[in-house]
Design a protein around this nucleic acid. Sequence first.
DNA 1: TGGGTAATGTGAAATGAGTAACAATAATAT
DNA 2: ATATTATTGTTACTCATTTCACATTACCCA
Lengths: 215, 215
Amino acid sequence: MKTSKQSIARLHSYREALYRLKYLGFVKVFSDNLADAIGATASQVRKDFSIFGLIGNKKGGYVIDELINKLDELLGKNQPQHIIVVGSGNIGKALMSYKGFGKVGIHVVAAFDTDEAKTNRAAEIPILPLGELKEFAKQRHIKVGVIAVPDTAAQQVLEMMISAGIKGVLNFAPIRLNCPEHFVLNNVNLGIELETVVYFVNALNRQAHDEKSKS
Amino acid sequence: MKTSKQSIARLHSYREALYRLKYLGFVKVFSDNLADAIGATASQVRKDFSIFGLIGNKKGGYVIDELINKLDELLGKNQPQHIIVVGSGNIGKALMSYKGFGKVGIHVVAAFDTDEAKTNRAAEIPILPLGELKEFAKQRHIKVGVIAVPDTAAQQVLEMMISAGIKGVLNFAPIRLNCPEHFVLNNVNLGIELETVVYFVNALNRQAHDEKSKS
DNA sequence: TGGGTAATGTGAAATGAGTAACAATAATAT
DNA sequence: ATATTATTGTTACTCATTTCACATTACCCA
């Protein structure tokens, strides 16, 4: 079964789009509607669905409620997921307050920070000292964490998480982290994402320039 | 010339890694060192370099300073880039205060927000009312912006940016945006990034379970 | 000086992802 | 009842990316 990161990301996108369509009152959907909604091709949608066993009706398209149910099951949306965030800087706070997570069954249950001055056990999402991470994660059977700390601290935090039984991490520190073979590590490097935009804008600019000087 | 988003992102990663190595006192580097540093293969590194005309010395590896200079030129790091951020929520603030940008020649020169209560013209990075975006961006010849607003406002902000002459956007709103053909749009969906981690952790779990029940 | 070695640089092969094409089929119209 | 049409599901193809393999070359040492 094809389960590349990209195809899973597309399934999540389909799911989001389906909820929007349902909310708008639609009952059925065709492959090209979904393609439009997420910026893919109809072929791609049908292929993804084929791979994951999501079936529709010849001529009739797909029934939105059925699709949503199947996707929820496939994507493990039926039981809520509890995660923790390490680092309560801006990125950490952004994730703690991200409204989108609730909708998808993800709940940030605590944040951790080395700076004990930031400790706040009374907050809706408590901020705890980093030293308490291991015990907390073990007790609550936390399986997923977010690393939003400076790059110099990231590897150490990751190891703490691994020893606490965490199996997957979304990492925002702009550095390559070492982890065991079957650990799930997803890196997001905001700097590089932005630099990439800058690069392509400059490239476009150069190109336009060249065109002009050619004429 | 191959300039997929991925290969450009790798060039940026090489560059980051090289600065780290230089800082640590290294003068030369081999393809497998760099591969380790960014999590790729040595072949990949050499292929990328080959494509972009970065050459080393048979047996002697690559001279770090030379590589950095070439990469800086290739990636347009020689002149500073001024960008703006729209939305001064947590993600917006995270980008405004992102320490990594300065190092790579990217400067956030202003932020914009619909909520005029947040206006602060005296701050190091001023926060201005959204209505001033167009004039500001035109006057300062801003070419790149970041969208860090709720999804319902994102398309409108994008159009405002386009009309102000902005050519590329890094978008954090979890929704598909429509833009002209040659516009550079890079989407980062934090929700999906996190959900993907959760999915693969669950998949791992299921797999382990299945293995056990089989024996 | 010459042989051995450790690297690069690159064409070819393998893999992977996305697209296109079309046969199968269910709904609808005549 | 039959033809027509719209849409799925899947196979085959194309294109892009990654890996492999090895010829090439510079350096080192005897």
